[in-house]
Amino acid sequence: MSEVEPRIRGQQAWHRLTRRAFLRSTGLATSLTALSGLSAVPALTSEGASGSAPFLSEDDTEVLTQIVERMVASDASGAPPVRETGAIAAIERLLQQLDPSLTQDLPLAIRLFDWGPIVFDFTFTRFVNMDAEAQDESIRCWMSSRISLRREAYAALRNLALLGYYSQDEVWPGIGYRGPLLKEGVGS
């Protein structure tokens, strides 16, 4: 029985990153939007992260955190601030558990998002150094860019952010979701 399908684990080096590969990686999270499909994701529960090496570096995590903060606007909504929820840990866990061929280019997307204002929008300030209003403006540039790669990156990070945040139990009371019925003892 020789017909064994080789499993492609993500070993792609940075220098080999193609636009296509980048689009695919962003397609990962784009697909998280799927009507009911936005699923995709191994448990985003609020347990601690697993013992394996972090998927994102500290710097990337900070950029991602700021992206999530602006995507969910938790400062303005009266909802729990992102840093007080398990959202970022949950996203990290998700990235660790997904097939690497799907996630391998995501760190690059995050870095591009950070440097995007300088590279694409001539604003001379990195995303992480902007105030909230400028960050929102920068996100809008990604969202409505004529470059499809930028729109895809927006979609990827947006969906990751929203899924990670709204999967957290702490967020549910503020949006009127009562959570699993099993928690109420029905059938447990």
Binding site: S31, S39, A40, V41, A43, T45, L98, L163
Partner: peptide, 14 residues
Amino acid sequence: DEMLPKLFEEGGMR
């Protein structure tokens, strides 16, 4: 968050 990846093709990303 726990069930969708368990149940769907391509982890829900098809």
